[in-house]
Amino acid sequence: MSEPMSESGASTPYALTARGLHKRFGGLTVADNIHLSLPAGARHALIGPNGAGKTTLVGLLTGLLRIDSGQIWLGSTDVTRLSPQARVKHGLVRTFQVNSLFPSLTVRQNVELALSEHAGTSRSMLRSIGSLTHLAERALATLAQVGLEHEAGRRVSELAYGPQRLLEIALALALEPRVLLLDEPAAGVASADAERMMSAIERLPCDIAILMIEHDMRIVRRFAQTVTVLVAGQVLATDTPEAIMTSEAVRRVYLGSGGQARYDHRS
């Protein structure tokens, strides 16, 4: 079986490789022969108009949705047929465009959930969680990474939207991902929180490969080394941010789809 290899060296596979992903919802093709590869430490942005299939692609990569055809590798492991849980164990972690948290638990408990699944302590039924002091410390440290350590004791249902978005990231970080897929982390977040969000993302360990879906081109430019443009389930272009922003084809798609004024905000 063929293994995905990076162009430069035969021995260093990409952190994430997707080849020829296809997905249809009834008559609607949402992923059409998508190729994507993220080297370790990648800072990759995925842009595209609403309904282009960006969230769907994350769902396909993580196993929430079943692909019709194609293959997905994490490193040199073929994960195409693995469950979402197994992919997480291989280091593939995502956040959600629409907050998906544990509303009746506290902020810290949310992170502890992730930590204890990652460490495997969630299987011990009788050991008190209070005795796992390192868990509590790690939880606070993880929260500090996104600046939420002061909210640790609050219930998530009492948390404002911005901090909830930050907690989304904290949950993902607790899992020590090798590949992190961020679905519009800053969407709808007030600018102060968005700044916290972006600087938290920028401070992430540089060996994590990150794919971020984002509409705001200022953020894309600040974050990404590489940008992939997805339109109607197809990859239109993959290039540096500068090249993408000056591309006539990309411009046409955005202007054609209308209402994407944010694209023109670039400065």
Partner: peptide, 21 residues
């Protein structure tokens, strides 16, 4: 226990629990 916490996590949001592995 942290198992108990995991159960409450599942009660709240089983999909996200799967995505915590």
């Amino acid at each position: 226990s942290s198992f108990g916490l995991a159960l409450r996590g599942i009660r709240d949001n089983p999909v996200r629990m799967a995505y915590l592995g």
